[in-house]
């Protein structure tokens, strides 16, 4: 359901994305702080929007794909703000802001007059736990991909012997970016694991089966294995730096395709219809 709050949040995200885009090239530090502020404002507005919708639904507003996409955008924006402020990594907003703007815009386009409520079978205390874990994990993977992009940007400038093109203060050292990427991946992996476990427990309680080889379950497992391999390869054979960044982005592409695929093409119990 689209409200004034949704549209206001979308506008703020679009402004943030634009300001980050321009600010990336401009030497003016001010633009970046304005962009960060716009992103924060967008997240704030969407918080109000989602709270109102959650009160109305009596649970997380995830009855339709559009709603769950909007929720995912919000979680990504919030986690993005945490990374920006805690790690002083404002430029990650250049990835987060367009991502959430596109996600929320898509959610708005798909929402239309869809005012379905959640099926009775899914109205459970498990729902917020499972969905929050899963979405938080996905948000961290978005951010890991964003940080990886920044790593590649910085690394390519250093390799090209043109380090002055990005002011030193804009991005932390390669070593930090690499470490931040690793931590985001590790946290995302833990959350993904917990989401799978809680999903299985909830399914066992509702349908009497832990696992039913649904598309989402299948792809979650595939992604779990892939992310586990990425994390393990760093420790075992030192996949770090450029290679780790590229693999993080590649894995994110797989995540994105599977997310869109299972939600739009072959929706199972997880999909928009919650059949």
């Amino acid at each position: 359901m689209i409200t004034v709050w949704t549209l206001a949040a979308l506008l703020a995200y679009v402004v943030a994305a634009g300001a980050f885009g321009v600010g990336l090239k401009s030497p003016r530090e001010q633009l970046i702080s304005w962009a960060t502020m716009a992103l924060a404002v967008g997240a704030g507005l969407q918080t109000v929007d989602l709270l109102l919708q959650a009160l109305k639904a009596g649970n997380l507003p995830v009855a339709t794909f559009a709603q769950s996409l909007a929720l995912l955008a919000w979680i990504t924006a919030v986690v993005g703000m945490v990374v920006i402020t805690r790690l002083r990594l404002a430029l990650v907003g250049a990835v987060v802001a367009p991502a959430v703007a596109i996600a929320l815009a898509a959610a708005c386009l798909m929402a239309q007059n869809d005012d379905r409520s959640l099926p009775r079978a899914l109205r459970s205390a498990w729902l917020p736990v499972h969905v929050t874990l899963a979405f938080l994990g996905q948000a961290l993977f978005v951010l890991a991909a964003g940080v990886s992009l920044l790593y590649l940007l910085k690394e390519s400038r250093l390799k090209a012997k043109r380090p002055l093109e990005i002011p030193d203060s804009r991005l932390p050292s390669l070593e930090s970016l690499d470490r931040i990427n690793y931590r985001l991946l590790a946290c995302g992996f833990v959350l993904l694991s917990l989401a799978i476990v809680t999903g299985a427990l909830w399914a066992a309680g509702t349908w009497g089966r832990f696992w039913s080889w649904e598309p989402v379950e299948l792809w979650s497992l595939v992604l779990w294995v892939l992310y586990a391999a990425l994390l393990q390869s760093r420790l075992a054979i030192g996949v770090r730096g450029r290679r780790a960044a590229r693999l993080t982005i590649a894995l994110f592409a797989v995540l994105l395709c599977s997310y869109l695929g299972v939600n739009l093409l072959v929706p199972g119990k997880h999909g928009g219809s919650f059949g």
Binding site: K154, L158, P163, D168, P172, S173, L174, E175, S176, R179
Partner: peptide
């Protein structure tokens, strides 16, 4: 030295 700080934390 400046470059070293761009590479290492």
């Amino acid at each position: 030295v400046r470059l070293a700080r761009q590479i290492f934390d």
